[in-house]
Simulated assay, not measured.
Amino acid sequence: MDPEERDWAEVMGLDRLPRHIVEKRVTDLMDLGGKKAIVTGAGGDGLGQAIANRLGGCGADVALVGRTLEKVERRAEEVTRRWGVRAVPVRADMSDWDQVHRAVAECREALGGLDIMINNPVMAHAGPFEGFTREQIDHTVLGSLTMMMYGAHAALEHLLPQGSGKIINIGAVGGRIQQRGLVVYNACKAGVVGFTRNLAHEMAPRGVNVLGVAPGIMIKPDLQRRVLDPRSDQDRAALGAVAEAITTQVQLGRVCLPEEVANMVAYLASEAAGYMCGQTIDVAGGQWMN
């Protein structure tokens, strides 16, 4: 090629196209065998443990991080037993800067590397904004946005030197719509969308890809029990708000399982999503404001 053609080829990145994927199945591209992943908020019955299971099911070794060691130990044992991969439990309070950085370093050491960081914060308050205390505002901002920044910062200490890796931030569809009683939480989740987009813009040229997932209304085992047997006025009020949202906003007309959201996380973590960058994908049954 003459110099002009060589310049155009470089500009278009023709030498960096993943041509090896052409003859592969999508399921082949979603094989995470050999990858090392960290999932925060992984000790409970919700999205964290579902993500750890999905990544383990795709072949990744997984470190499960949570505030209660016994819970993440139990979940790690389940992942190993079910999928035959290595699963490491690590205790840390992700609201503490030093603990976050220590935990991520500990996870990387235990796994023998780090390729995928799943930021899944789990702390928030709900209710009319005028009733919030300063402590509740601070706690919600910390648990819904700041903790995610801590986790990403800690992961980048390891991903940037190697020039590769993915960070996937868990937001919420509430970050795109307005909902009564979730003013602070939804504002933070809108911040997650912006954080994901801007961090991706900064990190993509350095080999680290940043993406996000925005769940809608998920139902965990404890909520299923409360649906079948609401025992307080607060339970009944919360269920009424959920029912209204499902009937007026969710196009599929139902709640979702954490595993359905975890499906998208596993996809984004894989080579199948290699040309996605900075986006936050809704997994919310088509939820929108009517």
Rank of each mutant, 00 (worst) to 15 (best):
M1R: 10
P3L: 04
E4F: 13
E5Y: 09
V11K: 11
V11T: 13
M12H: 02
I21D: 13
R25E: 13
V26L: 15
D28H: 15
D28L: 13
D31Y: 07
G34W: 07
K35P: 02
K36M: 12
G41M: 06
G46P: 08
G48N: 06
G48K: 04
L55E: 01
G57M: 01
G57C: 07
G57F: 07
G59C: 09
D61K: 00
A63G: 10
V65F: 10
L69T: 02
E70M: 11
K71C: 07
E77Q: 14
R82I: 13
G84W: 08
A87V: 09
V88Q: 04
R91M: 14
R91A: 14
R91S: 13
E109P: 07
I116K: 00
I118F: 12
M123F: 15
M123T: 15
F129E: 06
F129D: 05
E130M: 14
T133H: 08
E135K: 13
T140E: 07
G143S: 02
M148L: 14
M149Q: 14
M149W: 15
H153K: 11
A155L: 09
L156H: 01
E157D: 10
H158R: 05
L160G: 14
Q162F: 12
G163L: 00
I167F: 09
I167T: 08
N169M: 02
V173E: 05
V173S: 03
G175F: 04
I177D: 12
L182A: 14
V183Q: 06
N186A: 11
N186F: 14
V193F: 03
F195Q: 03
H201S: 04
H201L: 08
E202N: 01
N209E: 10
V213D: 04
V213F: 13
G216T: 09
I219E: 01
R226C: 01
D229C: 05
P230C: 11
P230T: 05
R231T: 12
S232P: 15
A237R: 07
T248Y: 05
Q249T: 13
L257E: 05
E259L: 01
V261P: 01
A262S: 12
N263G: 02
M264T: 15
Y267I: 12
A272C: 10
M276K: 03
G278H: 06
G278D: 06
Q279T: 14
T280F: 04
I281V: 15
M289A: 15
N290R: 11
